[in-house]
């Protein structure tokens, strides 16, 4: 009897964990596939199909270290644009990025796509992450 209850509880826990993980995975897939479209429409012209950037004009998006370090300011850069010097992949860039006309969910989707493509693997950037980051924009 005791064994049955323990087994039952363990089974429940197992199902819970698996389904939660699936939910998380599902979330990621939703963000990622929607993000690909946002990327194609708003980012790809400059940053390239494979995030390779454009010569010394547009920085590449495959610098995982840079992305991870700046993940909290990336939503602000995308939303408000950026002008000035920036070092990506050990190369210096000094041009301007126009503000993107995107809402928070689209920014979350685009950033999820970028930070998990081109050799990056940084997990989901959620709507909540973007909202939190946007409140701290300089």
């Amino acid at each position: 009897m005791k064994l049955k209850v323990i087994t039952g509880i363990l089974l429940l826990l197992f199902v819970l964990i698996v389904s939660c993980q699936n939910d998380k995975g599902l979330d990621f897939n939703r963000y990622y596939s929607a993000g690909k479209l946002v990327y194609q429409n708003h980012c790809q012209n400059c940053h390239g199909e494979n995030g390779e950037g454009l010569q010394a004009l547009m920085p590449p998006l495959n610098d995982s270290v840079f992305l991870k370090k700046n993940i909290h300011i990336l939503p602000c850069l995308v939303k408000n644009g950026f002008q000035g010097k920036i070092t990506v992949s050990k190369r210096n860039f000094d041009w301007q990025m126009p503000p993107a006309n995107l809402n928070y969910i689209e920014i979350a989707q685009a950033l999820t796509y970028i930070t998990n493509s081109f050799g990056n693997n940084l997990g989901t950037v959620t709507f909540e992450d973007v909202t939190a980051a946007m409140s701290k924009c300089k």
Binding site: N45, C46, L54, L57, M58, Q96, P98
Partner: peptide
């Protein structure tokens, strides 16, 4: 300063 098609053209 063209944000649309210029980069892809270049």
């Amino acid at each position: 300063s063209c944000p649309s098609i210029c980069p892809i053209m270049q």
